[in-house]
Amino acid sequence: MFDSALVDALRLSLQVAACSTALVALPALALGRFLARREFRGRTLVEALAALPLYCPPTAFGFLLLRAFRRDGPLGAQALGFDLDVLLTWRGAVLASAVMSFPLVVRTARVAFENVPPRLEHMAASLGASRAAVLWRVTLPLARNGLIAALLIGFSRSLGEFGATVIVAGNIPGRTQTLATGIFDALQVGDDARAVQLAGWSALLGFVAVWTSEWFLRRSRSAV
């Protein structure tokens, strides 16, 4: 049941999803907080741009990343003077997953921050708390469950990421092959049993992550 190829795909999937969630966490939560509290010109534009990966084909983003990181691309070895070594590596898979999960994390985090009554933050300020203290002592604790849910949703999305990943990182068994790309590989070679096995594991991991995020979302709604 656990052959080494399956173990590799499982390990890589979890590794990529964890790293991509870590990479996305700070900017996505910060943008979520910003969009939840600030009114400014061009807000709709920022929202639309941040949501783009949700509506564009992942292959289009994969292609753009490929262009950006290839040798003569704007983030390639020629332009930077050194090689970031992203393409066809597991780091490429992390980057592709991060880009594709970013909008979901931003969106869920924004809702989590919006659910914190601004008047509680005003109250904290009136009690002498600095902006950082308001964030740390009131906003983050009250938004905590929603933010954990946001990160879990990002993690789930990363686990399922295929289109952009396969273009940027390829589908190299043991190096860049995840559960999602592994299923495609198994189908290509007609190994249905393997495809079923990989799909089963994908579904199980996805279910656990999404179920946990729902649990946190439910708690976040009753927290405030």
Partner: peptide
Amino acid sequence: LDAARRAVGYVPQDQLLFPH
């Protein structure tokens, strides 16, 4: 002046106790 620097003690109708 920011609310934090006015040193007022505000007790609103809805109290705004920190639920956590």
